[in-house]
């Protein structure tokens, strides 16, 4: 499993296409896909959005992420870094942030390679 993170619009998907032999059409969009599709996908982007969608439907984000790590060991996961602001006013926003943070930590732990992309430049952090 590989993980690519960083801020929004930093070139994370481009990095996957250029360096991980993934084609653009193989990248599932976590913002719109059927959540279960991720268990067999080659690559997923916007995984943070998928986390939000799973939670909205009453699913357990931690279980979902752990299942993904078990069942799709070769997937490339692209996830925005979203926790770097002041604590949000809305409770639902705070919960979303927590869920994404926890899910991201599980993915990072299970990944053999983790990259962080900043202004198009990827730094391997694991």
């Amino acid at each position: 499993m590989k993980m690519i993170t960083g801020g929004a619009f930093q070139g994370k998907s481009e990095f996957a296409v250029k360096n991980m032999s993934v084609s653009e059409s193989e990248i599932l969009d976590g913002g719109t896909c059927v959540p279960e599709e991720v268990f067999s996908a080659v690559c997923v982007k916007n995984f943070h959005k998928l986390v939000g969608r799973v939670a909205e439907k009453g699913g357990d984000v931690i279980d979902f992420t752990k299942k993904l790590c078990r069942e799709n060991k070769d997937i490339i996961i692209i996830i925005d870094e979203i926790g770097c602001g002041v604590v949000p006013v809305l409770k639902s926003d705070r919960e979303y942030r927590e869920n994404v943070g926890r899910a991201g930590c599980i993915i990072a732990e299970n990944s053999s390679e983790v990259y962080r992309v900043f202004s198009g430049i990827a730094v391997r952090i694991k």
């Binding site: 926790g83 770097c84 604590v87 942030r97 994404v100 943070g101 930590c105």
Partner: peptide, 8 residues
């Protein structure tokens, strides 16, 4: 030690 929320 710094980092975003729930970053470990």
């Amino acid at each position: 030690v710094t980092g975003g929320s729930k970053s470990g």
